[in-house]
């Protein structure tokens, strides 16, 4: 049977075991584009968007994490209380494709495709999310940083399923910004997520569409942690400028038909400065 539609995780994992190279289909918003273009000719498909464990999310207030099933859609991430717990992820979700795409596309699919322009990925990176992978051998988890290997390459092994993503809930401002040439339904030329963790007095910055995969900007983060005033929510104009320079320097963009490397690098600097100012509105 080439198309399997399991409803439990056990069934889904068994299906993957039966054909470890099966095409995993969630919302189809990336995969079917390739099938329609003749770039992929599936012989076995495991459809995961009706696996109940993957369709739901749970909040663990003690661990301060949200475990989001891999088949949760962007439209669902836009709704409270998820949107309240993870506001940057909601902001990113609102930029994904169109309403139709947000109804179908899933966070697990975003991870599985692992495009550098994946809209949800900078948020997962900034929040140090963890990706659980399941197979008949059991579940293993890895940091999202280890999971994202390169352009459309991940650490998922044949036979494994991305079941969920576990996202820490931070105490502090977080926000997302995305540059595209159109005001809706557009592929990112540059994205950035800033997440403040007041508990650890840290500022995280992840950037997308400017490297083979999502990049964390360690120097900019270290600089910000020392340069901003967390209590007063303030950052000097100089600090914002320096943060932007370090962010731009951390990018590794390429020229393509969508934008030049120079523009993408410039845009990262602008986004970083504007996000940091939103996080620390006082001068």
């Amino acid at each position: 049977m080439p198309v399997l539609v399991p409803t439990t995780l056990d069934e889904a994992v068994s299906a993957m075991a039966a054909d470890p190279d099966a095409m995993v289909l969630a919302g189809g918003t990336d995969t079917m584009v390739e099938v329609n273009a003749g770039h992929r000719r599936p012989s076995c498909v495991v459809v995961v968007n009706r696996v109940s464990e993957m369709r739901s999310w749970t909040y663990d207030p003690v661990a301060a994490t949200v475990r989001i099933g891999a088949a949760v859609t962007y439209a669902e991430l836009l709704e409270p209380p998820l949107a309240t717990l993870l506001p940057a992820l909601a902001e990113a979700s609102r930029t994904v494709g169109s309403p139709q795409i947000r109804h179908a596309g899933t966070l697990g699919g975003n991870l599985g495709t692992c495009s550098p322009a994946g809209d949800g990925l900078p948020v997962l990176s900034a929040l140090d999310a963890v990706v659980p992978l399941a197979s008949t051998a059991g579940e293993r988890s890895m940091s999202v940083h280890d999971f994202m290997v390169g352009v459309k390459r991940t650490a998922r092994e044949p036979g494994e399923l991305i079941t969920a993503v576990t996202v820490p809930v931070l105490s502090g401002w977080q926000g997302y910004a995305k540059v595209g040439v159109r005001n809706a339904m557009v592929i990112a030329l540059a994205t950035a997520c800033v997440a403040v963790d007041t508990a650890s007095a840290s500022v995280r910055l992840a950037i997308g569409s400017v490297g083979p995969t999502i990049l964390r900007c360690a120097q900019a983060e270290a600089f910000a942690a020392s340069a901003v005033d967390f209590a007063a929510s303030s950052a000097s104009a100089d600090a914002v400028r320096r943060f932007a320079e370090l962010a731009a320097a951390a990018s590794h963009p390429i020229d393509d038909h969508r934008a030049s490397a120079a523009y993408r690098r410039h845009a990262i600097g602008v986004l970083a400065s504007r996000l940091l100012r939103r996080a620390f509105p006082n001068e």
């Binding site: 189809g28 309403p99 139709q100 109804h103």
Partner: peptide, 22 residues
């Protein structure tokens, strides 16, 4: 490829692009 919406249908109450549904 889900960029125009001409193929929109409802599946289980959700508006989706039918070109992207297997």
């Amino acid at each position: 490829q889900g960029e125009c919406g001409s193929c929109s249908v409802m599946v289980d109450g959700e508006l989706v692009c039918s070109c992207l549904v297997m």
